[in-house]
């Protein structure tokens, strides 16, 4: 099995911080490992479900179809649609990246994929009522509204730069 350099760097990075944490505070570090194990088990089923979805996507949906809806052919409309989907969906961002990667692999445009990830993380449609209740209508509207505009700007620039 081939292990990519990215994988090695990520694991080395985590290991380095774990060692530093243990030197700093043994008890807290053990607690952190427990928290890590718990969240790993919590997110594992959802993660595997997403991987099943990716498997089906790459097996049964031809790249031409994906490209038509969220690829270069789809243009502006496609990006708007995906960005709205990202704003409404409530999936942990950590598992949205493999999904985004598989879309990119199968013909989606850089702009669409970037729009999806950015609105997904920045805008919380599901938590908007809570945000309004705690921070007020004006603040929540400004933050989410501007986030949407910024997400579109970022993704269009990415599309232009990474063409």
């Amino acid at each position: 099995m081939k292990v990519s350099s990215t994988t090695i760097i990520i694991n080395a990075f985590a290991l380095l911080f774990l060692i530093l944490a243990f030197i700093n505070d043994k008890r807290k570090s053990k607690e952190a490992l427990k928290v890590a194990l718990k969240s790993f088990l919590n997110i594992l089923p959802t993660t595997i479900m997403i991987i099943f979805a990716i498997g089906y996507l790459l097996t049964f949906i031809p790249p031409s179809a994906i490209s038509k809806f969220v690829g270069e052919q789809a243009g502006f409309g496609g990006t708007i649609a995906v960005s709205l989907l990202g704003a409404v969906l409530f999936i942990p961002s950590v598992i949205s990246f493999p999904l985004a990667g598989s879309l990119l692999q199968s013909g989606a445009s850089v702009t669409s994929v970037a729009a999806f990830i950015t609105t997904l993380t920045m805008i919380g449609f599901v938590t908007l009522p809570l945000e309004i209740k705690i921070l007020g209508k004006k603040f929540a509207a400004l933050r989410n509204g501007f986030s949407y505009i910024v997400a579109l700007l970022i993704s269009f620039l990415m599309g232009v730069i990474l063409r």
Binding site: I10, N11, F13, A14, L15, F17, L18, A21, S29, A32, L33, K34, V35, A36, L37, S39, F40, I43, V94
Partner: peptide
């Protein structure tokens, strides 16, 4: 596992 450990820390 690496990502979860970093989050936990």
């Amino acid at each position: 596992p690496a990502v979860m450990i970093l989050s936990g820390l």
